[in-house]
């Protein structure tokens, strides 16, 4: 997964915190995460045609999925990533 953010804005921090928490709860050990600052690497945003920040892109496993926003809505993040809640986690009504 790649998370595109702009600089070190509060929203960037919220998104990173949210993502880390979700990954820890639901995807323990089953993911690789890269964080890209579009201010430093605008060309990468161009190549991926990203408009909004933060944007989370899941490349693998297919299909390609995008989630935009600060990832504060955990249900929507999981829905967007098409990841079944992990067995270790509590029940998660869709």
């Amino acid at each position: 997964m790649t998370l595109y953010v702009t600089g070190t804005s509060p929203r960037t921090r919220v998104a990173i915190d949210n993502l880390n928490r979700i990954c820890k709860q639901e995807l323990e050990g089953r993911y690789e995460l890269e964080i890209v600052d579009v201010l430093e690497h605008p060309q990468r945003a161009e190549d991926e045609r990203i408009l909004a920040t933060p944007t989370l892109i899941k490349q693998l496993p297919p299909p390609l999925r995008r989630v935009i926003g600060d990832l504060s809505d955990k249900d929507k993040v999981l829905l967007g990533l098409e990841v079944r809640p992990g067995s270790s986690s509590s029940s998660n009504g869709a």
């Binding site: 605008p42 945003a45 161009e46 408009l51 390609l64 999925r65 989630v67 935009i68 955990k74």
Partner: peptide, 28 residues
């Protein structure tokens, strides 16, 4: 700067966001 919608990619909105990436792309 091609910001046209990509019909192949599903996008879900989960929380607040801005168009910072777009501005960075235009600047670039």
């Amino acid at each position: 700067v091609d910001a046209s919608p990509d019909p192949l990619v599903d996008t879900v909105e989960a929380g607040e966001f801005d168009l910072g990436a777009l501005i960075a792309r235009i600047q670039n």
